[in-house]
Amino acid sequence: MTAAIDVRDLHKRYGERRVVDGLTLSVAEGEICGFLGANGSGKTTTIRMLCGLVKPDGGGGTCLGMDIIRDAPRIRLQIGYMTQRFSFYEDLTVTENLDFVAAVYEIANRREAVKAIIARMGLADRADQLAGQLSGGWKQRLALAACVLHKPKLLLLDEPTAGVDAKARREFWDLIHDMAADGLTVLVSTHYMDEAERCGRIVYLSDGKLVVQGTPDEVARDSKLVTFRATGTDLDLVARALRTLPGVESAAVFGSALHIAGMDRAALERATGSLGGGLVWHEVPPQLEDVLIHLLSQPGKAAA
């Protein structure tokens, strides 16, 4: 399979801070790749380097087979980049924004293309509303529509669903999967676990370095994280007590279930034995969420 994105050893520093520090990344064509990591881990800068908005200080590679430094203008014609912050014109209507984008990309049959995308994204009812008056979910949808209007081969989405309600997020992801089915490659950064689980592959960044990558299942399995689960009542109190014990990296309540996780099996067993008193504990396979929280709580230990 050919790689839509193939970059090696990317570096970018702002002043003293190494924002991206030797990142090597490969995304196959047609893949939905989730880009994860704490705030400031270099996700946005990496995405910007991929579309030529930021020049790497070191390293390089290709995007859709074109050099990310030399061919940036050509790459832009074939990618759709959705910025983290809504970056369309709030004083233009939905249709006007899309028409502007269509015109900038010199799309043939502009009117029809705009009409088609409005229909596909379900924006018909809002077509004449000012973009500034749309709610967050609709703004994201408009932005997505604008990004795919010129039928790009690669979508770079930078936290596309931040601050959007669950239903809107679900619909947004349905659209992304729908487009991936047509052969579109997607690189999407997110903080949401449910979204990470919908990705074909996830890549986890920390301090500008790639820490973990693989399918969500692989990442969970390879984490070597040990997870125990118990059900019962008054779990909040138990969780609070467990968190203070050595070896317990996280203790979280999900409704009537309590999850604890850590790297040290013996310590975890001691902890459940001493405090988990009335509860019955089962070891469960680690969930992606447990793994990600584990990773997020370990800054600095990132060097892979």
């Binding site: 908005l53 203008p73 990309y105």
Partner: peptide, 13 residues
């Protein structure tokens, strides 16, 4: 300031 520049730059203008 409105953040639209990033988008403008990403587009082929």
């Amino acid at each position: 300031e409105r953040g639209t520049m990033e988008n403008l730059l990403a587009m082929p203008v």
